[in-house]
Structure formats: structure tokens, C-alpha cells
């Protein structure tokens, strides 16, 4: 597999001794135009990688914040096709920042796996995180994606024990996403010491960069995790800012994109302070 945007970005970050700030936003929330503005401003605000959430009517692994964002976006008319258009427009401005689509399988299955992989790669998507496709269903999308040159980012969780880990790592590419808590997005936060142990355990089995997500809400939490992980994912906290800046009919209030950018800047600034403290456990 030749190095793509994801590999290049993690290699550059490693050279800087810095962990990646990975920001999640829900595509199309609260509407296409605002969502594009949020997306466009993320790299300048400090996002190293971007996860673009693909809304689904029944997001079983998400908490209320991201579920509500998905429903707002769907109500405003977002579709998978329009999300690919958002990515294509983003790529006109930014050729380097990796974009990973995150969501559930049915919209992709409905689009058609081969057509989706072709169109997504063509639009400039670098990787996929599909919550409801465990290794047991690799033939569906993971293997065709890897063959097409798309990275398939695997989730490891607190329930992924040593016996299970090889199955999870078998076809993992891009980076590994460690789900910090057994639960849904945007709820409980993990204990930093437990996390550190879990990351060390997984690092013995893979050379892939390891990012940590679920329950990371505050800049200081992100900074603490950045001391030992290769990336920190922040999602619900960003999406929650969007929710707070809507009028009663759900339209974006002035200043929404500024607020999101300011929060992302605060995350990036906090994580800068961890750079010096980063352990060199991963050679």
C-alpha cells in the first residue's frame, strides 16, 4: 500500500513529536452550507485529521448529541452523495488533510459498495470507519475498500481482549481507533491510567498509529491523552457547540463557525503542551 494522506500526516506528526488532533463533525449539520464552512475552517483551527460523520436514522452506537446532529442534517436534506460533494469542494482548498467518513453500513450498502468506493476515492476521501462492520463481516466492505486503495480504520474497545485483538488488527489500515469506554459516544470518560495501559497493550501488537476517542470533551483531557496516544478524537463536544448555536427553527446563528473554530483552537493549543511530555515508548 503506497503512503496516502493518512500515512503522510502521521509520519509528519511523528517527526514533530506531536499527537494528531482528530475532529469529528456531522456532515450536513445543521445544513450543507454551514457544515461546509465548519469543515473548511477545521485545518486552520488545528485539526490534523477530520472525521466526517455520515448521518444515519438509527445510530445505535451514538449518544444523544451525535444522534440529534444526524437527525438535523437528515431533516435539512443531507445524503451520502451530497457528503461526497462536500469532500470534493473541501479538496479544492486542501489537498493534505486526511478525511475519514464515519458512520453505519446501510447508507453505503444502499449506495452500492463498488460505486461508493469509486466515488468516495474520487472525491478525496481517505478512509472509512463503519461502526457496525466488525471483522466477522470483512467481506462486505473492508476487503473491497483495501483493494480499492481506501483505508479501513478499525475500532478496538475495552472489550477487545488479547484473544480478540489479532482479528481486529488483521485488516486494519490507516490508524487504529481505540474506543476509550464501553458505551456510546459523548457520555462517560475513561480513566487516563487505564487508557495508557490499554494503548501500551495494543501497541505491542501493531505498528499502526493509535488514536483515542469517545468521551474526550475538554482540552485538558485531550492534552493528557496526547501524552501517550498518537491521536485524540473529539466529536460530541464539537457537535454540541453546533447544537448550542441554532435558533428555534434550527437555523445556524451568526458566529457558529467562529465558536467551533475557537474550540478546536483551544484543543490544539492544549495538546501542544503535551508534545514535550510525549513518551517515546513507540519506536
Amino acid at each position: 500500500m503506497s503512503a496516502g494522506r493518512i500515512e503522510q500526516r502521521f509520519a509528519a506528526l511523528k517527526a514533530e513529536g506531536r499527537a494528531a488532533l482528530i475532529t469529528f463533525i456531522t456532515a450536513g449539520d445543521p445544513d450543507e452550507a454551514t457544515s461546509f464552512e465548519i469543515l473548511r475552517r477545521l485545518p486552520a483551527a488545528g485539526a490534523d485529521l477530520i472525521e466526517l460523520g455520515v448521518p444515519f436514522s438509527d445510530p445505535m452506537a451514538d449518544g444523544p448529541t451525535i444522534e440529534a446532529a444526524g437527525h438535523r442534517a437528515l431533516a435539512a436534506g443531507i445524503t451520502l452523495q451530497k457528503i461526497l460533494t462536500l469532500v470534493r469542494r473541501f479538496r479544492e482548498h486542501d489537498g493534505q488533510t486526511p478525511i475519514v467518513l464515519m458512520g453505519y453500513y446501510n447508507p453505503i450498502y444502499s449506495y452500492g459498495v463498488d460505486a461508493f468506493l469509486r466515488d468516495a476515492l474520487d472525491a478525496g476521501v481517505d478512509g472509512l470507519i463503519v461502526v457496525d462492520l466488525p471483522p466477522e463481516e470483512d467481506a462486505e466492505l473492508c476487503l473491497p475498500a483495501i483493494k480499492a486503495g481506501m483505508r479501513f480504520i478499525r475500532l478496538a474497545t475495552p472489550t477487545t481482549d488479547d484473544k480478540r485483538l489479532p482479528a481486529v488488527l488483521a485488516h486494519a489500515s490507516g490508524f487504529l481507533y481505540y474506543v476509550a469506554v464501553a458505551g456510546i459516544t459523548g457520555t462517560a470518560s475513561a480513566d487516563a491510567a487505564d487508557l495508557q495501559d490499554a494503548i501500551a497493550r495494543i501497541r505491542r501488537r501493531t505498528k499502526l498509529p493509535i488514536a483515542v476517542g469517545f468521551g474526550v470533551k475538554e482540552p485538558n483531557q485531550a492534552a493528557a491523552i496526547a501524552e501517550f496516544a498518537d491521536g485524540v478524537v473529539v466529536g460530541s463536544a464539537i457537535v454540541g457547540i453546533v447544537a448550542k448555536h441554532l435558533d428555534q427553527t434550527g437555523r445556524a446563528l451568526p458566529g457558529l463557525t467562529d465558536e467551533v473554530a475557537a474550540f478546536v483552537q483551544s484543543l490544539a493549543a492544549a495538546m501542544q503542551t503535551s508534545t514535550a511530555k510525549r513518551q517515546t515508548a513507540h519506536a
Binding site: P134, E137, A156, T159, V179, G183
Partner: peptide, 20 residues
Amino acid sequence: AHGHFGIYGGRYVAETLMPL
């Protein structure tokens, strides 16, 4: 053995649930 009835069935769940 994988829970497939023709093309139907399967195990499309989050990784957290898979071991259980």
C-alpha cells in the same frame, strides 16, 4: 456457521459487543 440465511442475517454490530 456465520449466521447467514442466504445473503441475510450476519453479525453487524459494534466491536464493543462482538466478544459478547
